[in-house]
């Protein structure tokens, strides 16, 4: 029983075809089959947020899905966001503000932050905190992370205003 199932999906702009056992989570599929280990497996029950990836441009927990469920979907991991320069400014702000210590939560934080940044709104500090409520960090105490996201939100907003005025 439980033979493998063929799936075809897009991961970080590349077409992927694979055979997966139904019980394989998307997180394990990305990490073990595709060697995309930027997606971290933490609690594996949807609490810590370390495994967040984008499915069809929305942050979701890769540990709360089986790979068979994302057949035909477009997946982007922190590696994909990094290589297409979608979060370079955000990563720089994380670095400069020391928004990580051990770094285990960082990929999930970046994916959540990407969700905040791509909402098109300019969130308040309180709203940023709220949007990060599903991401655990056991090192920083969150302040630096919120600072880095707030700075990036502000910089992007100012750049947009300057562009519109020009």
């Amino acid at each position: 029983m439980s033979g493998k199932i063929a799936v075809s999906l897009t991961v970080n702009s590349e077409e992927v075809e694979a055979f997966v056992a139904p019980r394989t989570t998307l997180a394990d599929f990305l990490r073990q089959d595709l060697q995309l280990t930027g997606t971290h497996a933490g609690c594996e029950m949807g609490v810590c947020g370390a495994c967040l990836v984008l499915i069809d441009d929305q942050p979701v927990h890769a540990c709360l899905m089986f790979a068979v469920q994302v057949d035909g979907c477009v997946i982007e991991t922190v590696e994909g966001l990094t290589s297409r320069d979608a979060i370079t400014d955000l990563q720089k702000a994380f670095h400069e503000r020391n928004a990580l210590q051990c770094g285990f939560c960082t990929p999930g934080m970046l994916v959540s932050a990407y969700g905040i940044l791509s909402s098109g709104k300019v969130p308040s500090r309180e709203e940023i905190r709220d949007a990060l409520s599903g991401n655990y960090c056991r090192c920083t105490g969150y302040e630096a992370i919120v600072d880095a996201i707030e700075r990036t939100v502000g910089e992007r907003w100012r750049a947009k205003v300057a562009e519109e005025e020009a």
């Binding site: 139904p22 989570t25 029950m45 927990h61 540990c63 709360l64 899905m65 089986f66």
Partner: peptide, 23 residues
């Protein structure tokens, strides 16, 4: 299974272990 946001952890914790998952 639809969203699976409660079912998948229940499966991982083996609180449930059905032979078939119907998506």
């Amino acid at each position: 299974i639809a969203g699976g946001q409660s079912l998948v952890p229940a499966l991982a914790l083996r609180l449930q272990a059905p032979a078939l998952l119907i998506d």
